[in-house]
Design a binder for these strands. Structure first.
Lengths: 254, 254
DNA sequence: AGACTTTTAAATGTCAGACAATAAAAATAT
DNA sequence: ATATTTTTATTGTCTGACATTTAAAAGTCT
């Protein structure tokens, strides 16, 4: 493992970087045990708390796991897609909310990416994934569904569609785009009419996927994107108009 | 902020989660200063080192930054796309290498995603991005280029293509797919002939993007994917054959 | 008064040493 | 031989201290 120059910078950050580089470079194999905290402290010529801070940084990225006890220690973690999934979604969500990404920008990215999965999904989707899509469509057609539950079902539907491509790399990358949009979608109040249209489009997509017609699925996704943006635009316009009215009332009455 | 149940679990992890949830929920605004370590320690009823470990976890995810000095402390970080970029690439790279994702799977995902950017890029690319693509193509045509430098140029070319879509969400998500493939590409020895073909395809893509013909660009990307997979298959076959031969020799002579 | 310098205070960064909790291995007893 | 106890190595946490950094307050000189 590499040493640390005694330059002016967070020691714990430097140590974390040194260990992370070793993992990325493959010098540390999966499930390999790192030296104990005391040994690392000795090696890097720092105190144990400093080493611990460095290890916590790595643990935060799921790069290592720690175990107490006699044969315990820090071990290089196998980074599974499933584990990385949650982190990716959280980060993507924060990126969207903190950078004031417009609904249209996020929506465009989401459907562009999703269309790239459609042809593969049309080829490979399992019966199970198809059933999930149909189940979610049915759920979405229930008028009693709250807007939040409707959005959650929408995510589940699209996730099944993406998983149908049977490519973990695609599923992982898409997760960030699709799930991170949920907070934005939750800001929308879906009218019964707009739900009907979307359910109809979802059905068309599922039909296309079932019949193996990727091109048709892509076409439907284009329509769904247009419809989603239209609904969002209406919802935001209505909200803005309401704000305008209330401001006017305040101006008059206040 | 939420409290901590005194259950059996890493205190630092619990505290990190509590603070992270507050940030994600929007209770803590960008650039807002967290309470000092001493105050947090007092609030959560733990020692300062424990609080520090929690803060280091958050710092590792770029959720907070810390500043020394009188008015220093931990501040909620604006998570910029640029910052998240590096993390995303690292994680994606590790996911690929640790999960033994096949070249074909990664390649399929990469080009599927990239094709989703092509139509947008054909519409919106700037002259600067187009120039970058041409520059990288020229670089790739230099026979003196090492394989690694060739791959790096390839990444730069495709990155310019993706950035042409002028959608930060797309650029961010694509980064994971494109840059994470570089280590896999580096395993390939590119022959002069295969480089020629790829340079030619890159030129066709650039021409299509320049003339605003998204469909043609998508078509070219399909060809490029097929060519890339073919080159990789040949390279792996050659390597496997070499191994076979050397094994046979060992068997005979050893 | 205004500009420059010094001091002060608050915060993080780091260290040292200690004890608790845990879990596996070794030693012991049944 | 099996079950129980003891030992031991390691991480988790605490206490208390000092170093370093930074901005603001106080002081000083022109």
């Amino acid at each position: 493992m590499k040493i640390d120059p005694n330059s002016s910078a967070n020691l714990s950050a430097q140590i974390a970087k040194a260990i992370r580089d070793s993992i990325v470079a493959g010098d540390l194999i999966i499930n390999e045990r790192l030296p104990s905290e005391a040994e690392l402290a000795d090696y890097f010529q720092v105190s144990r708390p400093t080493v611990r801070e460095a290890l916590k940084r790595l643990a935060a990225q799921s790069l290592i796991r720690t175990q107490r006890g006699a044969t315990g220690g820090a071990f290089v973690n196998r980074l599974s897609f499933q584990e990385a999934y949650a982190d990716h979604v959280t980060t993507s969500t924060l990126l969207l909310s903190m950078n004031e990404v417009s609904f249209d920008t996020a929506c465009e990215a989401r459907y562009a990416l999703e269309r790239s999965c459609a042809p593969l999904s049309a080829e490979r989707r399992t019966a199970d994934q198809l059933a999930t899509m149909r189940t979610e469509i049915f759920r979405q057609s229930q008028p009693s569904l709250t807007d939040e539950a409707y959005c959650a079902s929408d995510v589940a539907f699209h996730r099944a569609l993406v998983d149908g491509a049977a490519n973990p790399v695609l599923s992982y990358q898409l997760a960030g785009a699709i799930e991170a949009m949920q907070p934005l979608m939750n800001m929308i109040t879906f009218t019964m009419r707009s739900r009907e249209i979307m359910v109809c489009l979802h059905s068309s997509i599922t039909d296309a996927i079932e019949s193996g017609d990727g091109d048709a699925a892509v076409e439907c996704l284009h329509n769904l994107e247009a419809e989603t943006r239209k609904i969002a635009a209406d919802a935001f316009a209505a909200r803005s108009a309401a704000r305008q009215r209330s401001a006017t009332i305040t101006k008059i009455t206040g």
